[in-house]
């Protein structure tokens, strides 16, 4: 009885305060100091992350009460490791490694799917006589190791292609350029243009985008630990919304976004250039913000894509179990704006 009374009373007070002080209508968020949040992006600064930079530079995080710090992982560091050691609240990674780590009992939650379509492809020189994917049979190819190589392996298996030898591909396409392999793995937005920037023309190359061969696996997503999601769901949602706003802004203002990217590229002394970053931005944006013909929603991992990825990973024997769509991607079904 007493408890009920107090509850009613307190409710009355809460409701009365705005009535008593109508002038002070500032949002509660700005009254509180912004919450410090750290995100680890899975690779070195480049246009792949333009939306995050724009959201930070344009104050989209701040206006949602987040003081975001962006860190970059790289060849020597895994982005998910920063979640494990607690040095970051959020981290980006591809869907495949996320599923694998979830399988090995790291409680990852996808709070936003950023890159919805596969941008990966196999590239060969036309000169080598390769014109269809079946021509890769008996050829030397280089594939990325680990999680990134999973969809490639899946395509090779499903097409019953047996290369003469598979080389490990790491961070460069030099083995391909030096003629060590006939075909190599590539992201359309990255390696493909790197080859173009070494003087190879579009007509010199033949490409096999994996999405055309039954392996259209979504790529970048934003992940956090289950505990973070459970304890600070509002922060997670705010981060998700701000990041998507950043990407939308980048789509509308590509040169401004490019400026945000190049500033970080320059600070990091990376051996890349503006025209490459422009290409990367142009090519990755259509996989992030849906166009008129796309059925998916920005930020939402489609249940179908999720199911396909799980099925493919299981088929490849990489994972044995997967969480339900709702528990893996709780923001998906809730249709949070």
């Amino acid at each position: 009885m007493m408890t009920r009374f107090i509850l009613i009373l307190s409710t009355c007070i809460v409701l009365a305060v705005p009535l008593l002080f109508p002038a002070t209508n500032s949002p509660a968020a700005t009254e509180r100091p912004p919450a410090p949040v750290t995100i680890t992006l899975q690779w070195l600064p480049q246009s792949q992350f333009a939306g995050y930079y724009v959201a930070l530079d344009k104050g989209f995080y701040r206006k949602r009460g987040l003081e975001v710090k962006i860190r970059h992982a790289g060849p020597e560091q895994d982005s998910l490791a920063s979640l494990v050691d607690g040095s970051a609240d959020f981290a980006t990674t591809f869907l495949t490694p996320a599923l694998r780590r979830r399988d090995s009992r790291l409680p990852l939650i996808n709070i936003a799917q950023i890159v919805h379509r596969s941008t990966t492809m196999l590239i060969a020189r036309k000169q080598s006589g390769i014109s269809s994917i079946m021509d890769l049979n008996g050829k030397r190819i280089s594939l990325w190791k680990g999680d990134l190589g999973v969809p490639f392996q899946a395509v090779l298996t499903s097409h019953e292609i047996t290369p003469s030898r598979i080389f490990d591909q790491n961070y460069s396409v030099n083995l391909f350029l030096l003629g060590g392999v006939d075909a190599c793995s590539a992201m359309y937005y990255n390696e493909y243009n790197m080859l173009y920037q070494t003087g190879l023309n579009e007509g010199d190359l033949v490409t096999f985008p994996l999405r055309d061969y039954g392996a259209d696996i979504p790529e970048d997503g934003i992940y956090c630990l289950e505990s973070t999601w459970n304890n600070r769901p509002q922060q997670c949602r705010a981060f998700r919304q701000a990041t998507l706003e950043g990407w939308r802004y980048a789509l509308a203002h590509p040169e401004e976004a490019l400026h945000s990217v190049m500033k970080r590229v320059f600070d990091a002394h990376l051996p890349t250039n503006r025209s490459h970053m422009r290409w990367m931005l142009e090519k990755i944006l259509p996989a992030i913000i849906p166009g008129t013909g796309d059925s998916w929603q920005a930020g939402v991992l489609s249940p179908d894509d999720y199911a396909k990825a799980v099925e493919l990973m299981k088929r490849q024997g990489i994972i044995h179990r997967a969480p339900s769509y709702e528990s893996f991607h709780p923001t998906g079904g809730s249709h949070v704006p």
């Binding site: 350029l177 920037q197 070494t198 003087g199 051996p271 890349t272 250039n273 490459h276």
Partner: peptide, 26 residues
């Protein structure tokens, strides 16, 4: 270089970062 990357150029900002082809494009 073999890949067309600038190794030495009076424009220091080109070195290593730009290639003949990226500079042409830009």
């Amino acid at each position: 270089s073999k890949n067309g990357a600038y190794i030495c150029h009076p424009r220091q900002d080109y070195v290593v970062k730009e290639t003949l082809f990226s500079a042409a494009e830009e």
